[in-house]
């Protein structure tokens, strides 16, 4: 099978998977206990009022019709309206989503870069005291709950030392100054709020790339072909390049999955730092049972994981020739 055919098939599977996940979410949300209409109406609504709400939200229709509307809305890019803000979900979620992405994507990339380099360093120095004890710091950081690291950082750098603000994304003055939401990203105030949650995510996610890179380097280093390259006189720089290319394969596999974990793990970190991202939004939406918003956030995370894996699979066929494409 040619590569193009493989990509097309892989894309098709991806679409199918997304369809499956979206459908599953529909079912899952219908299975949740409680009655929509009662929640929407708030306390003390009369039965005629409830009936009216059911009518207007289409909750009286049979389930398959509800499913049909739901799917049609999703496909046309309309995930509904937030109960809480009465805003369309898309515009309601956009700002928190951006806030989260601007925090989590750079943090994960930095964590993977530092983690891989550190792991590679450990791997090349295997057997030394540096390797034996050098593995401790990332292990410690990676196995400590992230909210605890966050609280610790707050305690040291905000409360005790006063270097960074305690929480939020920017001060009131900054909010007052800017005209549109995205201008906040350009203020220094934003970045001083950014440092601690960013550091927390980096510390939490250093662990896997560091450990896996270390193991991978040790493994590849011990393979016979590295000896052959040495004996054939290839310069150490060239051999190092080959070693790194080969060793980084498992780390690359890890990247999208870890990014997804980071996004879904944001709830705790954002709550600790009071960061107005999707973690906080999800938390608030669950408390207020803002179903369309929760549903949409779940779909976004699912799509991210599915697409991340698609990208890795495609990337693999480019970087690793041993991945054969079979019918």
């Amino acid at each position: 099978m040619s590569k193009i055919k493989y990509y097309i098939r892989r894309l098709f599977v991806t679409v199918l998977l997304i369809f499956g996940v979206v459908s599953f979410l529909f079912i899952a949300f219908r299975l949740m206990p409680g009655d929509y209409a009662t929640t929407l109406a708030g306390g003390g609504a009369s039965s005629s009022e409830l009936e009216e709400i059911r009518e207007s939200w289409g909750l009286n229709e049979p389930l398959y019709m509800q499913y049909y509307h739901y799917m049609a809305n999703m496909v046309t890019g309309d995930p509904g309206t937030s109960h809480v803000s009465n805003e369309p979900v898309l515009s309601y979620v956009r700002a928190p989503l951006m806030n989260s992405l601007i925090l989590v994507i750079p943090a994960i990339l930095v964590a993977f870069t530092i983690g891989s380099i550190y792991g590679a360093l450990l791997g090349t120095k295997s057997g030394t005291a540096f390797e034996r004890y050098g593995i401790l710091p990332p292990t410690l950081a990676g196995t400590t709950p992230n909210f605890f690291i966050g609280i610790l950082l707050l305690l040291i750098f905000s409360s005790a030392l006063g270097w960074f603000p305690v929480g939020g994304m920017a001060g009131y003055e900054t909010y007052a100054e800017v005209e549109s939401h995205y201008e906040i990203y350009l203020t220094t105030d934003f970045w001083s709020h950014y440092v601690l949650p960013f550091t927390t995510i980096v510390l939490t996610f250093l662990y896997y790339p560091a450990l896996i890179m270390r193991g991978s380097v040790i493994d590849v280093k011990g393979q016979e072909y590295t000896y052959f390259q040495r004996i054939a006189g290839l310069p150490s720089k060239t051999r190092f390049k080959h070693l790194m290319k080969h060793s980084s394969l498992p780390v690359i596999t890890l990247l999208p999955a870890q990014t997804a974990t980071a996004i879904s793990g944001l709830v705790l970190i954002e709550t600790v730092f009071n960061w107005p991202g999707i973690g906080t939004l999800l938390f608030d939406s669950v408390l207020s049972r803002d179903t369309p918003v929760i549903q949409f956030l779940f779909i976004i995370v699912a799509i991210w994981i599915i697409f991340g894996n698609l990208i890795v699979d495609i990337f693999y066929t480019v970087i690793d020739p041993r991945i054969t494409i079979e019918d």
Binding site: Q223, E224, Y225, Y227, F228, Q229, I231, A232, G233, L234, P235, T238, H242, K245, H246, I319, D320, P321, R322
Partner: peptide
């Protein structure tokens, strides 16, 4: 030159044989 002990595992799995030959020839 050398025929190494584990000849079967002595080629770089991620590079074409022609590229590996070019690489060796380039050095010498």
């Amino acid at each position: 030159s050398v025929i190494p002990q584990a000849a079967m595992n002595s080629l770089n799995p991620l590079a074409k044989l022609s590229d590996q030959a070019i690489e060796i020839a380039n050095v010498h």
